[in-house]
Design a protein around this nucleic acid. Structure first.
Lengths: 347, 347
DNA sequence: TAAATTTATGAAACCGGTATAATTAATTAA
DNA sequence: TTAATTAATTATACCGGTTTCATAAATTTA
């Protein structure tokens, strides 16, 4: 029932190769035949079979997005999917489709990726850091395969990646606090091995020093991995040495800090200002609304897509990396008397 | 450089068709040749080209997941992605890959889907309701194409769908409240045209009547589409006729209701109990933690995948639908003195 | 007007597998 | 021993396009 290029050729009284050339806008075909073939195509509702086309062209026109996300990832790590949407948007605009692979515990990322490549099942790979390993890096490099890593691998490699600048985010947070008048600043970090938290701290410290308001060691508290942790740590911090402002390493910490400040009948930002990172829907509905240093993750996906497209078009291109710029979103937790925005339904 | 089936055949001294049969575990090949060919494959690191295989088999071994999600969808509508993860998990276990298409404003879902089908670019389609239309329904039906809709289309159709039972969810909420001793119950709904909110209300009303505690018209308030709306509506409700418990149509409403109750120096659940729907990460970190009637969306995706696989294997199967069962998650907003669970970092 | 170019079209190989039918070899039955 | 069956293997068409190269037709140049 489905009409193929042969039937079009037959009906139009030309050869298959002529039809193919018309399909590909070859300038070698006369205007007359082009029109004739086009008409027949229209008449027969002909659409080329993409499978056949891709096979003949030795291309899939497909990119694979690989992550290692657990159940509830969509709730706990929405960034991942927002990035994916950005990637999808860019690629689909250029005729590529995006396949999503979520690795299971049993699957080894190296094996999966090697299969994709040698079985010629995709033209490019977008990898979330949660799914990179040295083996992956080796496989990609030895095949000179177009790829981009979302996030920065924690080992030396020839991988192309795109990441946020957490250092810079930390520094932006400090500069903002300084500018609006808070000079005695504390930092509540996540787990000891949480690199994101650490980088944000480093950036904050550096900026503080440059501004002449350095953050003293007793104002740096680590290990807040749950809201309750953060609450307890904040309480202790306030009791021992109440700061004018607190930088929270992430939103979990911020929630705990909010609770703790409220527990002690202090107000935000009058007694203590709070700033955090990454804009979640609830950041803006907290009371007061939370000031954050944010990353436009969708745009990050867009950039990743652009870089990958470039690499697929020209595989000889050298390794490239890209760092997205953080954006400050000022709300009431660091500034008094600002109207809060209404929020649309999250469902 | 890549080794093909021909080279394997040549090296093993057999024909291409023999190698193909070995590849497909055909019982027609003798043990001896099978081993010989296997060895050569190993030696040459041969892996069949999936593109060629799929083309020859006239199958893509691919399913397409189609949605119409705006920017920030990952944050505002995480369910969508959690479902997708469930689908992906089921399908990848059966050798299918999942392609994600997010329709843009300019794209017509009917056209996109028709292209997918006639261009033979996918074996099955998972459609979020956000991307269905009558045209889509017609295209799928006239091609008898394997598909499943996530959510229930709001028009008569021959579509296969999987949905939640919002009616039942509403009834579960009422039964829970009744059971723990709240008999004067109010309902705060979303927008007038919000079908989900309406169905939950209907279920709640029916259950209440059956229990002999019917919800009076003045205890049903509609139109809470933002947190601020919900706050104002709740305030008015309490002022006019303070209930023992409030059912909030969704989490946005619940947040507003919480604010309002706190504003009036009332406590939850001692003065007023609150119950809502859908378990978001912040449901459990609210104060007190929010009792909700939840849907396991990941499992919903899993079920969708299973249904689609069945349909792809046997396209003659008749139209099927499936409704997932809601699950009550009891927390402190309806029950006094329950320890709250700790929350892991959301990032 | 013949030869050289240019333009338009088609024949056929190819992409790398699958699947059917034909062939050959090995067994079994007559 | 020969014919009939069965088992193992291969030749070949095919999936539906693309692409290279040969060829025919039209045009320009000598």
């Amino acid at each position: 029932m489905p009409v193929s290029i042969h039937e079009v050729a037959q009906e139009a009284g030309v050869s298959v190769s002529t039809v193919s050339k018309v399909l590909n806008h070859s300038p070698l075909i006369s205007e007359a035949t082009t029109q004739k073939v086009r008409n027949i195509m229209e008449q027969l509702h002909y659409r080329p079979n993409l499978r056949a086309q891709n096979f003949a062209r030795q291309k899939t026109h497909n990119v694979t997005f690989i992550a290692r996300a657990e159940k509830n990832a969509a709730f706990n790590n929405p960034h991942l999917f927002e990035i994916m949407c950005g990637v999808e948007n860019t690629l689909s605009g250029k005729g590529y489709s995006l396949t999503f692979i979520n690795l299971t515990k049993e699957q080894d990322e190296g094996t999966v990726i090697e299969s994709l490549i040698v079985q010629k099942n995709t033209d490019g790979i977008v990898l979330h850091v949660s799914a990179v390993s040295k083996k992956v890096s080796g496989v990609l490099a030895s095949n000179n395969f177009p790829h981009i890593v979302i996030g920065r691998p924690d080992f030396e490699s020839e991988l192309c990646w795109i990441d946020t600048n957490n250092n810079l985010s930390g520094s932006i947070a400090v500069k903002h606090l300084f500018q609006v008048g808070y000079h005695h600043i504390a930092y509540i970090g996540g787990g000891k091995d949480d690199l994101i938290s650490l980088h944000r701290l480093q950036g904050a410290q550096k900026a503080a020093e440059e501004l002449g308001i350095s953050i003293s060691p007793e104002d740096v508290r680590q290990g807040a991995v749950t809201i309750e942790n953060a609450r307890a740590i904040t309480e202790q911090l306030i009791r021992e040495d109440q700061p004018e402002a607190i930088i929270c390493a992430n939103n979990t910490v911020a929630l705990g800090t909010f609770h703790s400040i409220r527990d002690q009948a202090l107000t935000i930002p009058d007694n203590i200002a709070v700033i955090s990172f990454d804009d979640y829907p609830y950041s803006r509905i907290m009371e007061p609304a939370l000031t954050v240093v944010n990353i436009d993750v969708y745009d990050m996906g867009t950039q990743a897509g652009i870089m990958l497209l470039r690499k697929m078009k020209q595989p000889s291109l050298q390794v490239q990396s890209y760092t997205t710029l953080p954006v400050l979103i000022v709300r009431n937790s660091t500034i008094k008397n600002t109207a809060s925005e209404p929020m649309s339904t999250p469902i």
